[in-house]
Design a protein around this nucleic acid. Structure first.
Lengths: 224, 224
DNA sequence: CGCTCGATTGAGCCGCGTCAAAGTGCGTGG
DNA sequence: CCACGCACTTTGACGCGGCTCAATCGAGCG
């Protein structure tokens, strides 16, 4: 990751605006804010996990690479989401900005001391990690037990619940990102979208803009 | 789950031997010990998550069912492992004994108060959940990015590191369990074993007993 | 206008699932 | 002690879903 204490001479992407991360009700930590460009790395696998991040705007993906070099996207993070909490000293995965993104960040040491002093902070931290765990398990279920169409349907429903007004979804990520998240190929993802459009389940005004026409059909498709 | 305060008239499987769970260095909580028979349910999805468990002997699997009814095994737990920590009030998955198993258990409320009073306990709890998270992410990577042979190889290596003397593995679980863990079918798992035997990578004195003949070949196979 | 990158579409192939049939080990009861 | 039955495993034949390879399309941009 880029040094935090040093203003990079290359550009105005780094700003040291004071910002905060809410760990739980009543617990807010001070931190800095930084801007990342599309596809810029936030931190890399193996680097020291010195910071925890909250998405202010934009979107972030976390990645791990398989031993044969293929990448698996583990999760997408949207405004309000927190990521970067890890158990070891080093990150076990890397994170990149999907699109231009503003992130608020606080030192991990600050979080640790807060958790040590305030029981409710510790509680909030545990809940945070536990929710991520549940998330990862749900994802494993999808990867293990669902076909291509069902995976894409599940993905769209997940986004519809998190990002938008239930009906119009602006995809910040490319087909390649979706494919690497769902463990499919871009071609298969594309075909799934086309098929849903044919069935009038969704509309695709543009490739990054999805309109959910028939949510029930999507939910039916997800169950499959 | 069976009531803890009531001796089931059916059999001698429940014993209220006092036992303990070590959450971290220097923090040990008192609890009871219980015995579960092969395939017996420890707790079910949706039930109240009132206890946390540590495997004393035997093995446990955690399960989730896909909407179409197919099961996905999320993890296996062996002696020393802790499971049952969840974020909500209710369990989001179920747990069953793979073989006859002794479990130590403590009330969740006891853990919560311990974490609230002792910072190092809270720290240990967070680490525990974070390790599980890393585990689940690794599993997602395997399900998403590896073929049948690679999955089985990864599974065997994982067991070799955890359960045995690096060379002889006693499988407590059936082919069906392995298949549901790796998101394959029993036939495919069986074929993978047979293939490894043909390649002299492993030996199979019996279907539940694996001898690793060539660990390097296994590691090579895992990477694929 | 043409270049480039991402998305779509099509044809063919391959790995794994499905279905079916033996084969094996173990406990139970005669 | 042997015979039987049952649950689990192995093996084979076949089909299908998703991957591969390749061509085309479309949008943003210089």
């Amino acid at each position: 990751m880029r040094d935090l204490g040093i203003e990079t001479s290359g550009g105005p992407t780094t700003r040291h605006v004071s910002d905060s991360i809410a760990l739980g009700p009543g617990l807010v930590l001070q931190g800095a804010r930084m801007h990342f460009r599309r596809n810029e790395e936030v931190f890399g696998e193996g680097e020291d996990a010195d910071y925890v991040y909250r998405v202010v705007s934009g979107a972030v993906r976390t990645i791990r690479f398989s031993s044969d070099g293929r990448r698996q996207i583990l999760n997408f993070y949207f405004p309000g989401d927190i990521f970067g909490l890890e158990c070891g000293k080093a990150h076990s995965l890397s994170a990149e900005a999907v699109v231009d993104a503003d992130l608020a960040l606080v030192r991990r040491s600050a979080i640790d001391t807060a958790a040590a002093q305030d029981a409710s902070a510790a509680r909030a931290l545990i809940n945070l990690v536990q929710r991520q765990l549940q998330n990862a398990q749900e994802h494993a279920l999808v990867l293990g037990r669902k076909g291509a169409g069902e995976r894409v349907a599940a993905f769209l429903l997940q986004l519809a619940d998190r990002v938008t007004v239930q009906c119009e979804i602006d995809l910040p990520m490319s087909r390649a990102d979706i494919a690497d998240y769902l463990a499919l190929t871009i071609e298969t993802v594309s075909r799934a979208f086309t098929q849903m459009e044919r069935d009038h389940t969704i509309a695709l005004p543009s490739s990054r803009h999805v309109v959910v026409r028939n949510r029930c059909a999507l939910e039916l498709l997800e169950a499959a």
